[in-house]
Simulated assay, not measured.
Amino acid sequence: MLGTNLVLGASINLGDMLAQLVIFIILLALLAKYAWGPLMKVMKEREDHIANEIDTAENNRQEAERLMNDANAELKEARQNAQKIIEDAKQTAKTQESSMLDDARKEAERIKESAREDIAQERDKAVQALQEQVATLSVQIASKVIEKELSADEQDDLIKEYLDKVGENK
């Protein structure tokens, strides 16, 4: 075996190899029991923790999305309510404007009617006064005509004279 030692540069001892193999297997068993098991347990707990965090984040994202959708729906409803309020206000303004215009027209018509009545009354008074003056003048003219016999020219002069007096009385 001397030739084998020279070729390998060291002697191979089967007993040492066997002892190292047994020690390695025992070491693997101890590592599996005391190091690998706890390490795998920690890794499993970490995996579960990360999975829980992912689930929580997903739930939070869904909740945030739901809240955002709710907020958008409320905002849309608020905009619709605001638009409805604006439309109602416009309609109310139009109604009030129409009512005010109708009231103003009625008041103007009432004032015009009152003015017409006043004008008619004043015209009636003026006609009545004129009739009284004409009657008075007629009586005066008739009494003058009866007192004396007048020619046509004298009658015309007398009528003109009385008409001039009526014109001065106005």
Rank of each mutant, 00 (worst) to 15 (best):
M1H: 13
T4W: 10
N5Q: 07
L6T: 10
G9C: 00
A10N: 04
N13P: 00
N13F: 11
L14P: 02
G15P: 00
D16H: 09
D16K: 13
V22A: 14
I23F: 10
F24N: 12
A29E: 12
L30S: 00
K33I: 03
Y34R: 06
W36H: 13
W36F: 09
G37F: 10
L39T: 15
K44S: 07
K44E: 12
E45K: 10
E47S: 12
E47V: 01
E47F: 06
H49F: 12
I50M: 05
N52C: 00
D55H: 05
A57G: 02
R61S: 06
E63Q: 08
A64Q: 09
L67V: 02
L67Y: 01
N69A: 12
N69D: 10
E74M: 06
K76I: 07
Q80T: 08
K84R: 13
I85Y: 04
I85K: 11
I85F: 08
I86G: 02
A93Q: 13
A93H: 05
T95K: 15
Q96E: 14
Q96L: 13
S99D: 10
M100V: 11
L101E: 12
D103H: 11
D103W: 10
A104N: 05
A104V: 08
A108V: 03
A115N: 15
R116L: 07
A126Y: 06
A126S: 09
V127H: 02
Q128E: 10
A129V: 06
Q131E: 10
Q131T: 03
E132P: 02
L137Y: 11
S138I: 04
S138H: 15
V139T: 15
V139A: 15
V139W: 12
Q140H: 08
I141L: 12
K144F: 06
E147K: 06
S151C: 02
E154G: 03
D156E: 14
D156C: 04
L158S: 00
L158P: 00
K160C: 03
K160N: 15
Y162H: 14
L163T: 12
K165R: 09
V166P: 02
K170D: 09
